[in-house]
Design a protein around this nucleic acid. Sequence first.
RNA 1: GCCCCCGUAGCUCAGGGGAUAGAGCACUGGUCUCCGGAACCAGGGGCGCAGGUUCGAAUCCUGCCGGGGGCACCA
Length: 555
Amino acid sequence: MIELELARLVRAAVEEARQELGLDQVPEIEITRPRQKQHGDHASNVALAIGAATGRNPREVAEALVAHLPDSDLVAKVEVAGPGFINFTVAHAWLYRVLEDIVRQGEAYGRSSDEPAERVLVEFVSANPTGPLHVGSGRNAAVGDSLARILDAVGHTVEREYYVNDAGTQAELFGASIEARYLERFGVDASVPEGGYAGQYVVELAAAIEEELGDSLLEVPEEERREWLAREGMERALTDIRTTLERMNVRIDRWVHQSGLDVDAAVDRLRKADLAYERDGAVWFRAEQFGDEKDRVLIRSNGEPTYFAADCAYLLDKFGRGHDRLIYVWGADHHGTVKRLQGAAQGLGFDVDGAEFILYQLVNLRRGDEPVRMSRRRGEIITLDELLDEVGPDAARYTLLTRSTDTAIDFDIELVKSQSLENPVYYVQYAHARIASVIRYAEQQGVPMVPFEQVDPEELVHETELDLLRKLADLPEQVRVAAALRAPYRLTHYTEELAADFHRFYTECRVVTDDASLTQARLHLSAATKQGIANVLALLGVSAPESMERLEEAG
RNA sequence: GCCCCCGUAGCUCAGGGGAUAGAGCACUGGUCUCCGGAACCAGGGGCGCAGGUUCGAAUCCUGCCGGGGGCACCA
């Protein structure tokens, strides 16, 4: 809001000064936030741009613009500084409005609807249902779910989907692997097939199935038995996955099974568009036409469709349901398949930009100096559940969200556990709990909060109070940026700053005092901060506790 | 060999073309008669290298070096 208003003022000044400056075109007006406090609350670099375009001294341009700046009750001070920046200091009255906004909007503070609303489909996790989720999927889940929440907050209609890969070779291998473990239990000589699933999970699955069905599967014909076991095993694995995701506060709206997709129809459609052809007994997609290194197989020479063919069918299915934008959340190890799928989207007649791929770098688990192996085949993985057990869902989820998706995460379990006191998530949650505690204390002292209409915000003049207001005022913009950049991690940094501003305020300013008017103003500032923290944590999928246990060490 | 990501403080990471590059951890020293000390304040230290674009580059482009990941008729 404030930025838009400032941009309007600057634009008006440029229009006014246009002739004087000999300017043909009004450049785009950007309002930025200076890093240095002495440079005011907001700044415009437009004079630098005009200076470069016209050959005039930017400082003189800035002075001329300031002279033409319309009056506004928003601006308390304007200064020309540095090489030609115009620095604005915002009037306190405008900062106080944020309190009113938060009181009025409550949980909705931070939401906006300025952008054109789109129907967005976020597909994430989509781990194969052949075992428990591992930590990499945890990052996928955290990023995808938070991104969905953030996109929803800026006004999009968002659906979250999990693609269940329940067909093809790996499903068969899964069935055969369970079968081997099942037969083993009856002393039958059987072994997990080459490339199959040798992990402990499959052993447990077989045991559970034996417990329920006894030896009744021994007589079932092999093919039928394997198919049944594959289906049964996947259902059980999906149940476990669902439970794990719920623990992480992840919501999935829809589970789409590969087996339910019409792969033949998709391949047909590519064929009719002359984007597929036969060679060496296989059917190929002309991926090279779309910038991929080479053409890609859709149907193998043995008649089986590839994973990629199913991806094409799913793509058709998704767009066919009327989504404007598809977001795929993928591990970076899948980056090589992006080109061909984008090509397919284009080839099938969709806007290439309609399919976006968020590639997150991998998660490396460590315990101190010891790397934790993550080879599923060797069955040595630390499952996501085990991680949640060790560090807790909030800390796990928050930690997985703190980094840009472009950065690999070194997740040291020992560190997140042993230094949980210093974990940023607790710092933020503590601020929230601390505020709740202060409000409770005030009530105990016989000073419950009065309605906002009776509060005089002008009591808030301390520098830490104004800083906190400025930070709160910035919240909606931070959400918009996180949405635009598809970058949930931005909000972890923001919320840490917000918590820090509160702690500073709290250290400097006593909230509950004899001064009734000041007390009310500070209580409302605190409550607004609490709401702001809660709203951001909600977007991150992390809880905002009313109180936290005191730790021994703290006493 | 080709493709993607990264290289910023001792460590882990922020930094949307702008002014004096920030935070946490670690280290050193401080702060409270009082609302939650899981807090606050202060201090030291840094943009891999070389070019280029720009009034202005940590940021954009090219090359090189270093680290990670990927290059199937696997998923």
